[in-house]
């Protein structure tokens, strides 16, 4: 099944992500975010960067928003652009993850923040899904 689908939204952007479990859902959500931002191409010999992050949240939805906002924060504060995300450990209130990317802020599109609007991680017959709306 497709793991990422854009949903129509008048002013901002919304995407539906799916996964067989929390790990896959959170990985897909991070990939969706990075895909939305896009990035300018790198020249040859660009150095790679890695960041290990730990995020906490009041519940699964808060953890998801905090995780995605952590990526936005790190890119802006460290001036790095991430291309991949791997969840190393995850529970309903805590996750540990590794981000991979490149130095320099090379994002094409600004996402100001990830919102809680209408957010609910729902169980489906094939796993879990969530619709995430971001402020652009």
């Amino acid at each position: 099944m497709p793991q990422l689908k854009e949903i129509e939204h008048t002013a901002d952007r919304a995407f539906l992500v799916r996964g067989k479990d929390l790990n896959e859902l959170f990985t897909q959500a991070a990939q969706a975010l990075l895909q939305f931002e896009g990035r300018k191409p790198y020249g040859k010999g660009s150095l790679s960067r890695e960041a290990e992050v730990e995020v906490e949240g009041f519940d699964r939805e808060t953890l998801l928003v905090n995780w995605l906002n952590e990526i936005l924060y790190l890119q802006e504060a460290r001036e790095e652009t991430y291309t991949g995300a791997e969840i190393l450990e995850i529970s309903d209130q805590h996750l540990k993850a590794r981000l991979k990317g490149q130095p320099g802020d090379r994002r094409m599109r600004l996402i100001k923040a990830v919102t809680f609007h209408g957010l609910r991680i729902k169980e489906t017959t094939k796993g879990i899904e969530a619709t995430v709306i971001v402020d652009v």
């Binding site: 949240g57 519940d59 939805e61 808060t62 928003v65 905090n66 906002n69 100001k112």
Partner: peptide
């Protein structure tokens, strides 16, 4: 953006 997102998260 950061101020808002921290309080929206905390106020959950």
């Amino acid at each position: 953006h950061q101020v808002c997102e921290e309080y929206v998260s905390r106020f959950q």
